[in-house]
Amino acid sequence: MSAINFRGIIPAISVPFNDDYSIDAPELRRFAQWLAKRDGIVALMTNGHTGEVFSLTPRERAEVTAITADAVRDICPVISSIVCEGINEAVEQAGWAKEAGAKGLDIMPPHHWLRFGFKPEHCLDYFNAIGEASGLPLVVHIYPAWTRGSYSSDLLAELARNKHVAAFKMGEREMNKYARDIRKIREADPSKVLMTCHDEYLLASMVQGIDGALVGFASLVPGLINDLLNAVKAGDLHEAMRVQDLITPLKDAVYGAGEPTGEAHGRMKAAMALAGILRSGTVRPPTHAPSADELAAIRSALAHANLLPQRAA
């Protein structure tokens, strides 16, 4: 069904901005090409939370996908997230993403579901409409278990049997449900790909038997995350723990004790600038740049992982 190999590392990419908050297209092209060539990267994803999707207009989301897809067209495919409130809008934006060069779509729950909830048939109708209209492989973006936009294990099994669904972005952030969901999806269709999106506890989520990682954190530390996944797949727990020890201080500096948030994405973008990955760490309002204390913690964590450029060490 899918020409995309989801079994590896898929960064949800950051979007560089100019000082006036416009999209820095040349820097996005350069960054996308650099990232796509890192070991273990099998695709890039645009318009995720790490890409500050809620600060982008629908047309800007298509623009980001078009710039990225053109930049990496000879390297790897691009997946675009679809963040909409209804079926008609989702179908329209899926069409724009496909026209922009996306080869797959990551489907976030409509955000009114977070307040009002939804019926399973609402979800199935949503995926079927997008899949039929676009003809692209779909990724189920699973929201945390504590939200009203979370999918039950039985619904995930039903989605695993859906012909349009190729993969799952596993973001339950509640490990009992995470393990149960993995089991239910595997039972329903073992060919569907399972990818952790638990940026803040990668090792713990990888050892559950997943196939890859679709995480914003891979915009910053693609090599370390690839090393970690390879160690887990090889069953080398000592090596996996060594790599995680390099990641953990940076994870703490970016995400703290919580989940990824807008401010955390701002801290990660600042880390990318300090590491020489991006020209600038500019974020769009209402997200704020990190404080001086936060920047000091980020710099220290980058030094621990040996990720500071020589001039900044």
Score class of each variant (00 low, 15 high):
21 Y>N: 15
176 N>G: 13
27 E>K: 08
274 L>A: 14
56 L>H: 14
210 I>Y: 05
240 A>L: 03
108 M>K: 11
76 C>M: 07
155 L>G: 12
111 H>P: 03
287 T>N: 12
296 A>P: 01
154 D>C: 04
33 Q>V: 11
261 T>L: 03
55 S>W: 00
116 F>C: 05
97 A>Q: 07
142 I>H: 14
267 R>W: 05
65 T>Q: 10
72 V>N: 09
208 Q>V: 08
74 D>L: 04
280 S>G: 03
201 Y>H: 04
105 L>T: 06
68 T>L: 10
281 G>A: 11
213 A>R: 00
200 E>S: 06
45 M>I: 00
302 L>S: 04
255 Y>T: 04
199 D>S: 10
63 E>M: 13
27 E>S: 09
99 E>R: 14
6 F>P: 08
242 R>N: 09
73 R>V: 09
221 V>M: 08
166 A>K: 05
228 L>G: 08
309 P>D: 07
289 A>H: 07
246 L>R: 12
276 G>W: 11
278 L>C: 10
155 L>F: 13
179 A>M: 08
216 G>T: 02
242 R>M: 05
14 S>K: 09
120 P>K: 03
305 A>K: 07
166 A>W: 00
110 P>M: 08
282 T>E: 13
218 A>Q: 01
202 L>V: 04
81 S>F: 13
132 E>A: 15
191 S>T: 15
187 E>Y: 01
172 E>T: 10
283 V>Y: 01
259 E>P: 01
243 V>C: 10
138 L>F: 02
247 I>A: 01
112 H>S: 12
51 G>Q: 10
65 T>R: 09
104 G>A: 01
84 C>Q: 03
169 K>L: 11
301 A>H: 13
273 A>L: 09
280 S>T: 10
163 K>A: 14
164 H>S: 12
94 A>I: 09
218 A>H: 02
79 I>Q: 09
224 L>N: 06
218 A>W: 06
313 A>P: 02
134 S>H: 02
65 T>L: 11
282 T>P: 04
311 R>L: 12
106 D>P: 01
271 A>F: 07
7 R>P: 07
106 D>E: 11
162 N>S: 02
272 M>C: 07
180 R>Q: 14
276 G>D: 12
63 E>N: 06
249 P>T: 08
12 A>K: 07
206 M>E: 03
266 G>Q: 02
130 I>F: 02
226 N>W: 13
276 G>Y: 11
3 A>M: 13
44 L>P: 04
199 D>M: 03
260 P>V: 12
2 S>Q: 03
104 G>N: 04
183 R>W: 10
283 V>C: 08
212 G>M: 00
306 N>T: 06
279 R>G: 09
156 L>H: 06
103 K>A: 15
153 S>E: 14
12 A>Y: 14
102 A>L: 12
177 K>R: 14
226 N>S: 15
201 Y>V: 05
68 T>G: 02
148 R>A: 14
198 H>G: 00
194 L>E: 05
303 A>G: 08
88 N>R: 15
205 S>W: 06
261 T>I: 03
218 A>I: 01
225 I>T: 13
66 A>M: 12
4 I>A: 13
8 G>Y: 00
179 A>T: 12
119 K>E: 09
224 L>Y: 11
304 H>M: 06
211 D>H: 05
266 G>N: 01
151 Y>M: 04
250 L>I: 04
203 L>F: 08
142 I>D: 14
76 C>G: 05
60 E>A: 05
273 A>Y: 14
264 A>L: 11
140 V>M: 10
